[in-house]
């Protein structure tokens, strides 16, 4: 059986359980459902709220380097710590967090495979409501690595030239334009459809029923053979607000080892609102 390109970034729930008291391992929970952490989390885990702590409240952007440093300092994380991220919805926002940690150059960040649900479903795994006592640090981040992030001009060029893989990871109904966003979501766009040239590979095709990632051969077969992603080319992934595409970005870059993969976090809520931008509909 072949291995993932970077097997070290994926940890089992058992590994996490064994390292609950390891002072150099810092657990961080990031959920779609921001109530979940308060209801119960892995002992010692800090909780990040994606809505209020990982993005800027006024300008639409990820948090700045200074804000990232402040967040990690107040969470007691040091640069030489092993940061383990996990969350609900098969690690949607945990993957977004992973992407953010990589942008700001944290050397050792990993995901707990299966996320919050796997831990919840395993009888020997404990959950608590007590928040950990944190000793603040003086965290220093690296300058942002923008090679991991795509902006509109590049997306337009990829769409026009069709020389890179452009992957739309949303559900088929969002891709076709039948719906603009999944039911109940408040962030939408003026129009439904997709960026011309994008292939639709829903993020969920990469996971098993228990929330863990599919094995390497299956992922390779899916992305390279069935869906036609060319591993020799650069890739841009997008979704609606950038969290599901972080999940696929993680799969392509860290599990399958593609060299140049960017997350377009502006995603459909940006592109689908741009005046003059060409779109495609298949509904």
């Amino acid at each position: 059986m072949s291995e993932f390109a970077h097997p070290e970034v994926l940890l089992s729930t058992d590994w996490v359980k064994e390292h609950l008291n390891d002072p150099n391992v810092k657990l961080i929970e990031i959920d779609v459902d921001t109530q979940a952490y308060d209801a119960g989390h892995i002992p010692g885990a800090v909780g990040f709220n994606w809505q209020t702590q990982l993005q800027q409240p006024v300008q639409r952007d990820i948090i700045s380097k200074e804000e990232f440093e402040k967040l990690l300092s107040n969470s007691g994380v040091s640069r030489d710590d092993t940061v383990v991220l996990y969350g609900d919805n098969h690690n949607w926002f945990a993957a977004y967090g992973f992407w953010l940690f990589k942008i700001y150059g944290h050397p050792d960040v990993r995901l707990m495979d299966g996320g919050r649900q796997k831990w919840l479903d395993e009888e020997d795994k404990e959950l608590v409501t007590e928040k950990p006592r944190v000793t603040p640090t003086d965290y220093r981040a690296a300058d942002p690595d923008w090679t991991l992030r795509a902006f509109v001009p590049e997306v337009m060029e990829v769409s026009k030239k069709a020389d890179k893989n452009l992957v739309d990871v949303r559900s088929p109904d969002e891709y076709s334009g039948k719906v603009i966003a999944p039911p109940g979501m408040t962030e939408t766009a003026q129009r439904g459809g997709h960026i011309p040239g994008a292939k639709n590979i829903p993020w969920s095709s990469a996971v098993n029923k228990d929330g863990t990632f599919k094995p390497p051969e299956e992922l390779k077969k899916l992305y390279f053979e069935e869906k036609g992603v060319d591993p020799s080319k650069s890739t841009v992934a997008y979704c609606r607000i950038g969290e599901r595409s972080s999940h696929t970005w993680f799969v392509l870059k860290y599990l399958l080892g593609l060299n140049d993969v960017k997350n377009y976090d502006g995603s459909w809520t940006e592109y689908g609102n741009l005046i003059g931008a060409p779109i495609e509909k298949s509904a």
């Binding site: 119960g40 098969h90 649900q117 409501t129 996971v207």
Partner: peptide, 23 residues
């Protein structure tokens, strides 16, 4: 029902399970 995935289960079931386990 954010973006349903196979086996994801209901958010309400998982949250209730969390309460029962953590508290």
């Amino acid at each position: 029902e954010l973006c349903p995935a196979p086996g994801l289960g209901d958010g309400s079931i998982n949250l209730a399970k969390t309460y029962a386990k953590a508290q």
